[in-house]
Design a binder for these strands. Structure first.
Lengths: 138, 138, 138, 138
DNA sequence: GTGGTCTAGACCACC
DNA sequence: GTGGTCTAGACCACG
């Protein structure tokens, strides 16, 4: 698993962790049953406070994405994948809706908005990404 | 001018005000030179603290959208409109970019994303909006 | 007498008036005994609030630069000139002192400061002034 | 870091703080990356309201002199020094220009002004300062 | 009346 | 512990 945090991007660090873990599960990078690195391990690796990792794990446990295996660590819940997939879909849909609504309400015409949208897709295709994701193109 | 604040939507109140004023200027609801309602007036009208309004106005002054006329009130800067228009365009583009990038990075294929996008546009066209805009549906 | 006000230069309007009148007296543009334009006249001419002019005159009266002649208007006090001259000198000296002190305290060396000073003098000589003063160069 | 505020000197307290912090960065008293005392700490130390300190810090953040490290404090931006140095130079130049211009416009002749200037420099050299600077006389 | 500043005290999210 | 936001109420300078 490859996690990365961006301080000061407006999102809380623990929130970035929660989202990234969910995404990893949704995409199959993390499979149900798999034991993930310990709190201390991750904290050291990401150079953040262990409390912050702990908080993210707590939330993931509350949402039944992770479960604690006594003495062995945290593992991905067996039924987490479907939950994460739909979670992500819904989250994306909501955000997309919000942006589209604001754009149209502010007077932008659908054709212009469509153009902006296609431009964003094209920009991604050209490999302009804010965060590198090695191997993501395969 | 019709301002409205939504508490607890994640955005600070003063930030909501800043954005709404900028949008109003961008759309011509507020025209350059126009003197806007006083701090106390707006605070009473929106049922928030005058300091909060003051803070928003301060930021708008820093960004050269408003200017203070000593003893007379706050007025829209003469060259504020173009600034606000480009501001809004850029802000929307950034948010759209972010959503698109996240969607594609998480494995969604462009065709599916396009479908979601069109669905959002259609939903808006059908008049499903979080905030009513009287008469906007025709 | 030629007065001019610059709104929003940080200085209060009534203060600008006070200073300009004092300067005019110091330079002999206004001579002792001379009756100056009425409050209403000046207010209309400068497009400012009569209250503001009144306030400036009040202060000038307090400082014995102007005196009210019942039914005739405000006139320059007979002994105002010397007072205004020294006033101005002292004011300038204080401000110059303050700038020099801050510059030197912040580590700037006297030669460099001298250079800045001469550059300012030269800039003025070249006619680069923030406020036009027609005929001032003769 | 040694900050001090002078109430009622015409400048707002938060503005005095902003300037002093910038100066401290410009002179290297505060170095990039350094975490400065907390809002509450400074407020207690200077006997002013935490909100006032917070306001100054907010402005310094807007000007990219400080950055907030969530939960850890405020730190000097890595590229703040050069910005602060030029800021200060420019500010001093502007003030010097203003004084020189006013002096010359009011009829003072360059030689006399030069004399006043040298007198200010000499006064500083003799150690007459409004604020003590221990050891600065050597 | 207007904006600008400051204080006091509270609550929140984050580390 | 940290910074960030908000409220309540006060005082000032200005027009």
């Amino acid at each position: 698993m490859q996690l990365s945090i961006e301080p000061n991007n407006g999102l809380a660090i623990y929130d970035q962790l929660v989202r990234q873990v969910k995404f990893a599960v949704a995409e199959g990078v993390l499979v149900p049953g798999q034991v993930i690195p310990s709190v201390r391990e991750l904290a050291k690796q990401l150079a953040i406070n262990p409390n912050t990792v702990q908080r993210a794990f707590q939330q993931l446990q509350d949402e039944q994405v992770l479960q604690s295996l006594r003495g062995r660590g945290m593992a991905v819940c067996s039924d987490a994948k479907s939950r994460c997939v739909t979670d992500r879909q819904q989250l994306l849909a909501e955000r997309l809706n919000a942006v589209v609504e604001e754009a149209l309400r502010s007077g932008l015409e659908p054709p212009q908005l469509r153009e902006m949208f296609e431009s964003s897709v094209a920009k991604f295709d050209r490999g302009e990404r804010t965060i590198d994701q090695p191997g993501a193109s395969q």
